[in-house]
Nucleic acid binder design. Sequence first.
DNA 1: ATAAACTTAAACACTTCTGCTTAACCCATT
DNA 2: AATGGGTTAAGCAGAAGTGTTTAAGTTTAT
Lengths: 134, 134
Amino acid sequence: MKESLLTERQKEILRYRKQGYTQQQIADIIDTSKANVCTIEKAAMENIKKAKETLEFLYTLDATHLCTIKAGSDFLEAAKEIFNEAEKIGIKVRYDTISLINRMRDSNPERFRARYIREDIIVYINEDGDIYFN
Amino acid sequence: MKESLLTERQKEILRYRKQGYTQQQIADIIDTSKANVCTIEKAAMENIKKAKETLEFLYTLDATHLCTIKAGSDFLEAAKEIFNEAEKIGIKVRYDTISLINRMRDSNPERFRARYIREDIIVYINEDGDIYFN
DNA sequence: ATAAACTTAAACACTTCTGCTTAACCCATT
DNA sequence: AATGGGTTAAGCAGAAGTGTTTAAGTTTAT
């Protein structure tokens, strides 16, 4: 059993990239094609995404569904809704409006367009008032 | 490409477990053997561990090696060493002694025995003074 | 418009993971 | 000593991931 999702090859390439090498330069160093470097880098990033989503799932295991933000809402509305729903079930949200919106955006930047939400977002809350998005 | 490391089967079992069911009860519900439930649960936990280690690697990509804590040290010594080494390279550690020790223990509980460290721990620091362990 | 950097797709051999069964085992409680 | 909860190991078929190549396609900057 490997200890990380990333293979040695993938880590190697991420390290070189971090150092600023281009895919072509890396291809020369490790003696393969740049297409291959690209593929491996892409696989690495997919693995990183998977890892994040796996841990997200763990959070939602602890948490309960709070509400679902409908596509098309703007995020101030969304934040308001979250605070309301949390109040209904008697839990105090651990974030102020600004941090909440930041967390929302960080959790899945592609789902935002300016201040609008493009896809439904499922919102979870745990006993401590931590909020998670899916 | 799956979006999470965990399969549906694995998530299903983690959910039931969270609700307090025994492996036997789950086996009955999903119509399989308890040995199988055990195996799947174990696989799920290994996947979660992998996910954590994958993200740990990302942190260490940003960070530089600070020092290695030798097996056998106690953790007050370890904390002192970390502060010293960080000072040498002119970075202020973002944690006080207590939080640092907590983070150290949380990062890999099996490596601790009372206040002693059982295996070498590689310590990384980034520009912001965040500390990571391996 | 040219070149450099990067992405994509199809195909391939190989390796690893997944869920499952069976059968045995450990460790508390009773 | 029996019961209930949990773990382990070997083995298997099917699914999914890995690194490669080749060849064609974008993007981006000069």
